[in-house]
């Protein structure tokens, strides 16, 4: 989770170790040799900057938004698919797409009006609350339907499956909530 949270951080927060660690995680779909190659180059670049008098954080900030950077790097590999890790498993790919979705959510929240005026704050909160309202309503509906279907077909076993699903989905929702909250409130603090 910690590395994932780094996607939200501004460049200035990151030192070399965190930056490189994030890169390694984000580029997990690539072959190990390619990944190491990339990380080594960035590491050397940061060292060069530091020897010229910059701090690690400044050097990392000069790379720009790490999300965009990772996109650019992966773009370069779309040309030659033989370097994509054929063992990049379905979980890693799912997590990758999940993160892309979270980025879209965060960008949407970003584009909302910020500021100290009450109107903007109310708008922010109401969007935030409605998002959760819709999500929860959808989930309750989903549980009801699923419970009905599974109970009818599988009886006791169906209930067991449904309960496990509820637990898994609730955990995922809590993770989403945690990260959005982190993002929304850390962004607010930088106003």
């Amino acid at each position: 989770m910690r590395v994932y949270r780094n996607l939200w951080r501004k460049g200035e927060d990151m030192n070399k170790k965190i930056f490189l660690g994030t890169l390694v995680k984000e580029l997990s779909i690539l072959k190990i040799s390619e990944r190491e190659d990339i990380v080594k180059e960035y590491s050397q670049h940061i060292d060069d900057e530091v020897s010229k008098g910059k701090t690690e954080e400044e050097a990392v900030a000069n790379f720009g938004n790490i999300k965009d950077l990772v996109m650019d790097i992966l773009d370069a590999y779309n040309i030659d698919s033989s370097v994509v890790n054929k063992n990049g498993n379905i979980i890693e790919k799912t997590i990758y797409h999940f993160k892309k979705f979270m980025d879209k959510v965060s960008d949407t929240i970003d584009s909302l009006p910020k500021g100290r005026n009450v109107g903007a704050q109310i708008l922010n909160y109401s969007v935030y609350v409605s998002f959760w309202g819709i999500l929860l309503t959808g989930l309750i509906f989903f549980y009801k339907v699923l419970g009905y279907v599974l109970g009818g077909v599988f009886g006791g076993f169906g209930v067991f499956v449904m309960v496990s699903l509820i637990i898994v989905i609730s955990i995922i929702m809590l993770i989403i909530l945690y990260n959005i909250t982190l993002h929304v409130f850390s962004k607010k603090n930088t106003n």
Partner: peptide, 16 residues
């Protein structure tokens, strides 16, 4: 330029 842009570009040029 943003220094990050150089390395992906070099990767692409190498792959091509």
């Amino acid at each position: 330029i943003k220094e990050g842009t150089i390395y992906p570009l070099l990767k692409r040029l190498t792959n091509e």
